[in-house]
Each structure stands twice: as C-alpha cells, then as structure tokens.
C-alpha cells in the first residue's frame, strides 16, 4: 500500500499541479474532507475555500484558495477541477474589500433572479476569501 496519494489541480488554462501528497484537505460543498491514500471513490463540488496539501505527515501544509470547482477521487488519485486558483500571499486586501463592496451593491441592484444569483455567487467567494485572510 502506498502511503502517498497522487493529486492534480487543473484549471481551465492549464495543469497547475501534478504531484504526490500524504494527504489533502479539500473544502467540499458539504464540509471539508481529507483525502488520504486509498480513499473510496467519490465526487464532490467545492465551495470557495482553502485547499491544504500536506506533502508528508509532519510537513506544514501548502495552501491555495479555490473559487470553486469539482473534486474527484478515483482509484488513481485525486483530481481537482478548479474554477480559479489564487495564491494566498499575493492578495491585495484593500482591493478585495472594495470588490466586496461593489459586489454587495451589485446584489442589491440586480434586476431579476438570474442577475442576483450571479452577483451572489461572486460575493460568496469574495467573502470566503476575506474570512480566510483575517
């Protein structure tokens, strides 16, 4: 039995990461879950949140922010189809805060349900990100 798990993070633009890890903590839509080697096959949507990658059991995690996506655990490993991946340390907090304010206005101004849903979705990932940063 192997004690590492193969995982890939794929964004629409390219394959971001293809490596081995001891465990990966994924922000699933129904709560965080930890993918370990030999995990049973499953598929889950991802809510905006932080993915933590532990390369070995005692090493600190490598973190990325995911805007959403889909995680698929198959016998071969973990595949994350990410909508967008952000590096946590490269984020401008002020710009984010003003974006959040804009998004709040957009939600209020939305003229129908379709627009409101889109604006709320935008707002959701921004607030999730600012919670992570604070």
């Amino acid at each position: 039995m192997s004690d590492t798990l193969r995982f890939e993070i794929v964004s629409p633009e390219r394959l971001l990461k293809d490596a081995q890890a001891a465990m990966v903590v994924v922000p699933g839509a129904d709560g965080d879950f930890t993918a370990l080697p030999q995990h049973a096959p499953m598929m889950s949507t991802i809510r905006p949140g932080v993915i933590e990658i532990y390369e070995s059991e005692d090493a600190g995690p490598e973190k990325f922010f995911l805007k959403g996506g889909l995680a698929q655990i198959s016998p071969e490993g973990l595949t994350i189809l990410a909508e967008e991946v952000l590096q946590l340390d490269g984020i401008n907090v002020d710009a984010l805060n003003s974006d959040i304010n804009e998004a709040v206005v957009a939600v209020e101004k939305a003229s129908d349900d379709v627009e409101r849903l889109a604006a709320e979705k935008e707002l959701a990932w921004m607030t999730a990100l600012s919670e992570v940063l604070n």
Partner: peptide, 23 residues
C-alpha cells in the same frame, strides 16, 4: 468504480454544466 456523490449527482451536474459551456 462506485462513486459517492456529495452533495448529489444532480447537484454536481447543476454546477458542472454551466461551467462546461464556458470551458
């Protein structure tokens, strides 16, 4: 492989289909 779906197959599809159009 028998997959476990979280939240559900329909919900995942609901999320995936619009994204697929964009992709």
């Amino acid at each position: 492989a028998i997959y476990e779906y979280e939240p559900s197959e329909e919900a995942i599809l609901e999320d995936l289909l619009p994204r697929n159009v964009a992709v």
